[in-house]
Amino acid sequence: MYSQGLIGAGSENKETPEFLAAFQARIDADEKIEPNDQMPAAYRKTLIRQIGQHAHSEIVGMLPEGNWITRAPTLRRKAALLAKVQDEGGHGLYLYSAAETLGVSRKEMTEELISGRAKYSSIFNYPTQTWADIGAIGWLVDGAAIMNQVPLCRCSYGPYARAMIRVCKEESFHQRQGYEIILTLAEGSEAQKDMAQDALNRWWWPSLMMFGPPDGESPNSDQSTLWKIKRFTNDELRQKFVDATVPQALRLGLSLPDEALKWNETQERYDYGEIDWDEFWNVVKGHGPLNKERVAARKKAWDEGAWVRDAAMAHAKKVSQLNITPIAAE
């Protein structure tokens, strides 16, 4: 995005206290930071990490759902799922572009992902065992993603905020198509209802984990809040998600797999049980059910696409040497 030539031009700024204070003053005044602006190295680094992980999550997120495209029960469901998975690919691309404005290359990010060094949302390391899982993912996983992404539309870094606005416009269909799948199953035969309940049982807790570690254990949180990259804490977003989602589950006639879950009259919110953080860290550290398979699938796609990229580059070079005029704009 924008002229890449300038990137890094501002990176030699000395981070004097005056420079840092002036930067913080811009943030406090709700000014957006744009790609070639001077910014503290740590702000750049934080964003590269966060946007990169976000992009990887969209791309890896295509795998569990892609698993069911050929087995969708009707043409209507297949068309919707195909469009949803295509959107997720698009989200990944918007986000990689946003990260590239900070001076990291697409190639570096791809290498991080296919070498297994990159982090992405740990929920995508769980398997999609039944068709009901596709409903649960759209409803819960996209629902949780929306909670996270809506405040990011106001993030201080312009390209990230703009990418999030596009993404959020598209997410609503994702969640609705998921809920419709679960609703149809929940109103179906006994076996279909069981399938919906089983999916909810397996996806509920990992969905709550999507908001990240509890407040106080999240090392980058405070600085990100000061820089207006983050607008709400992990626990605040998790609570909003629980409060929005529990009534939707009740409407389905399904139960949530949490005995401690109950409405708190005085606080006007749902109290919920203890999250198994050992499970969360285990998956984050690479020991989830499908971490290896997910990275291997991305590496396979990348490796098997190499000849296409090579051929396209060779073709472009040949055409430019022959001096053939490209298609003119208007």
Partner: peptide, 23 residues
């Protein structure tokens, strides 16, 4: 301006732009 993408030539860039930014 609505974003950016990678492509080897203008034809590929136009097709990718159609897919990525005008769904």
């Amino acid at each position: 301006h609505c974003g950016s993408l990678h492509a080897t030539d203008s034809k590929m860039a136009l097709q990718a732009a159609r897919d990525v930014y005008t769904r």
